[in-house]
């Protein structure tokens, strides 16, 4: 894989991301918006594959594209009728949001293009699953065992909270 092939693949993924991001926010049928969000997340997983982070891409595919989008589609099916179309967004919000997005994005992109990033001079470490798993569960220097445990407690608390909130009050 040379640089040219990578740039073509990158162009494909980024085109998918940008087009389907627009479809996510401008589609007036809510189920189509959810499916467009799914395409955006899958293309982002493709970008992670291009960066050699296979584990992150797998997490993106299973948790984001597989979990969160399915959750969103479930809630769409529970709360709205499928054939209903949204009314058009008010022109005031469209214009104000467009100004915010264009100016904010323009300033950010201008800064990105005019800033010289300095890369670290240290040699790269391998990005295989063994290195990631060892560091994620290590308790030594640069170990992430404590945040890992805290996030598991947080997930448990969030699941219990979701059940309690959505439970029908008798």
């Amino acid at each position: 894989m040379g640089l040219t092939t990578n740039i073509w693949m990158f162009g494909l993924f980024s085109a998918i991301i940008i087009v389907f991001s627009f479809m996510t926010i401008f589609s007036r049928r809510i189920l189509r918006a959810a499916v467009s969000l799914l395409f955006v997340l899958v293309a982002t997983a493709g970008l992670y594959f291009m960066l050699d982070y296979q584990f992150m891409a797998g997490v993106q595919l299973t948790l984001y594209a597989g979990g969160i989008v399915v959750l969103i589609i479930f809630s769409i099916l529970l709360t709205s009728t499928i054939n209903q179309k949204f009314p058009k967004a008010p022109a005031k919000y469209l214009i104000l949001g467009g100004i915010t997005a264009v100016f904010g994005g323009g300033i950010s992109i201008y800064t990105i293009l005019h800033h010289s990033f300095t890369a670290s001079a240290n040699p790269a470490i391998p990005t295989n699953m063994k290195a990631i798993g060892t560091q994620l569960l290590s308790t030594g220097v640069n170990g992430y065992a404590l945040p890992f445990e805290v996030i598991s407690i947080l997930l448990l608390a969030a699941m219990i909270a979701a059940i309690v909130i959505a439970k029908k009050v008798i």
Binding site: I25, G97, T100, V102, I112
Partner: peptide
């Protein structure tokens, strides 16, 4: 950046 500001627009 484009994805972020499209999200803000939405």
């Amino acid at each position: 950046t484009a994805m972020f500001f499209i999200g803000i627009w939405g």
